[in-house]
Amino acid sequence: MSSHGPTGDELIGIGETAARFGLAGSTLRYWEERGLISPAERRGRWRRYGPRELHRIGLIQLWRDTGLMSLDEIAAVLAGTVRDRTWRSVVLGRLEMIEEQQRRLAAAKEHLEHFLTCPDEHPADNCPVLREMTDVRLARQSA
């Protein structure tokens, strides 16, 4: 077996598969229950995975960790289309959510950077910029 994974028809068990991805075996079983993966071979309780399944597990982990996708979103992308919702619309929805998070993080960063550089010794009480920020927020909430 190569260090990069099984080749050809080689299959590996759930324990080794889970270890290679830094996952618990229960995670793989849960993903199977959710229909996200299925073993290449199953004999009784024993599950074995090949290159195709390893790729799919890697995609799920990648999308969950770096794409911040939920398992429902991942299931929809893997299925292609679910209830008139295409995988593209799922990905576009996730991108919109990430962009909103980026806007909120940029605003938080700006606020905190100002807080650190405010010349007033007690900026929470006396900073005019922070006072303006809270006044704008209050006006927005009251509207």
Results as ranks from 00 to 15, higher is better:
A75G: 15
I37N: 07
I37D: 00
W46T: 04
R48N: 00
I37Y: 11
L68N: 11
L59C: 15
I60K: 14
S38N: 08
W31E: 10
R43V: 02
M69C: 05
A79H: 02
W46E: 00
S38K: 09
W63V: 07
L54K: 07
S26A: 02
R83L: 14
I74G: 01
F21C: 02
W63Y: 12
D65M: 14
I37Q: 04
V77K: 09
W63E: 05
W63M: 03
V82F: 11
W31Y: 14
S70W: 09
E41V: 09
S26E: 10
A40Y: 09
R42V: 14
Y49I: 00
W31P: 00
D72R: 06
E41H: 01
I57S: 07
R64L: 12
A24Q: 11
G50W: 13
A79W: 08
E32G: 13
R47V: 06
L62G: 14
R64Y: 14
H55D: 11
L28Y: 07
W31F: 11
G35A: 08
V77F: 00
R56S: 02
R47K: 06
L71M: 15
Q61F: 07
T27G: 06
G22M: 10
T81H: 04
G44T: 00
V82G: 07
I37T: 07
I57P: 04
R42L: 14
P39N: 03
D72K: 02
I57F: 04
V82H: 14
R52M: 01
S70H: 02
W63R: 03
E73G: 03
G25P: 00
R56H: 05
D72H: 11
I74K: 06
E41Y: 03
R29S: 11
V82W: 12
R29T: 14
L23W: 04
R56L: 04
R56M: 01
Y30E: 05
R42H: 13
L59W: 15
F21W: 07
R42D: 11
I57C: 08
G58E: 10
I74D: 02
Q61H: 10
L62R: 14
W31M: 11
V77S: 08
F21H: 06
G67K: 05
E73A: 03
